[in-house]
């Protein structure tokens, strides 16, 4: 599904990702943890194709294609979804209209005609239930006036509607209370399937109690310094990131 080899990237002339390797197979859930400033957000921005970030080396292959050659919208149409850490507000554009445009753009890319209105409404209804999003939220402007929790739920709702093959959740747990966290995690768990993969970027172990990963990687200073199973997250929680930093320094 996704193969990242020796990726180097940065912003404003500063290298932040310094030789990153990762292999994500279909159906797998990978958690990437790390202290502040380790490059977690840079990684998600680079994978989504944000223009400010410059890739200086390495390869990223997504479903056999060169991801780095694609524009952000083509990456999305190819099935890559980023749940934003800070979802953006678009005043005056309803969630429904936004999603309809997105769905039809993705369909057009695949050579399929626009979705029928009634099919679309059915889809929206079904996916809303998944993240316990109220009907009125779908009709409101994209993220405008949403609470922090509603914004994050809206991200998962959009993901559910767009049905990506690879979803990157960028600190989706930040700013969520325990109820919202549970709802968001439940939504994600219901979307897990053998042909959909997840990269869950998080600072805390807490989210991983709900979304149980297959692999946990620790990112530090732009590289993965340790990988393991879900128990690694618990170890990190217990010992803190200083433990990893010490190990790196000693190595």
């Amino acid at each position: 599904m996704l193969t990242i080899k020796n990726l180097r990237a940065g912003i404003e002339g500063k290298e932040i990702i310094k030789g990153f390797n990762l292999e994500v197979k279909a159906g797998e859930v990978h958690a990437i943890m790390g202290p502040n400033g380790s490059g977690k957000s840079t990684l998600s921005n680079v994978l989504a194709g944000r223009e400010d970030y410059i890739v200086s080396g390495g390869e990223v292959s997504f479903n056999g294609k060169n991801l780095l050659d694609m524009s952000p919208e083509v990456r999305a149409r190819e099935g890559l979804f980023l749940a934003f850490q800070y979802p953006i507000e678009i005043p005056g554009v309803s969630n429904i209209n936004f999603l309809k445009t997105a769905i039809n753009e993705i369909r057009a890319y695949k050579g399929i005609g626009p979705m029928e209105a009634k099919d679309f409404l059915k889809l929206i209804k079904e996916k809303q239930a998944l993240v316990e999003l109220q009907g009125s939220l779908a009709g409101r402007s994209v993220n405008e006036g949403f609470s922090g929790g509603e914004k994050k739920r809206n991200e998962i709702f959009q993901m559910a509607v767009l049905e990506p093959t690879l979803a990157i959740l960028d600190e989706t747990d930040s700013g969520l209370d325990i109820d919202a966290l549970r709802i968001v995690a439940n939504g994600v768990n219901k979307l897990r399937s053998e042909n959909r993969s997840f990269i869950v970027i998080t600072h805390y172990q807490r989210l991983l109690d709900y979304i149980v990963p297959d692999f946990v990687h620790v990112l530090y200073d732009g590289v993965i310094v340790k990988s393991g199973g879900k128990e690694l997250a618990l170890e990190l929680e217990e010992k803190g990131y200083d433990w990893i930093k010490k190990e790196v320094v000693e190595a």
Partner: peptide, 13 residues
């Protein structure tokens, strides 16, 4: 940010 958000959902500039 708004434009990038749209692009990330498959909508061109």
């Amino acid at each position: 940010d708004q434009i990038f958000y749209c692009k990330q959902r498959g909508i061109d500039t």
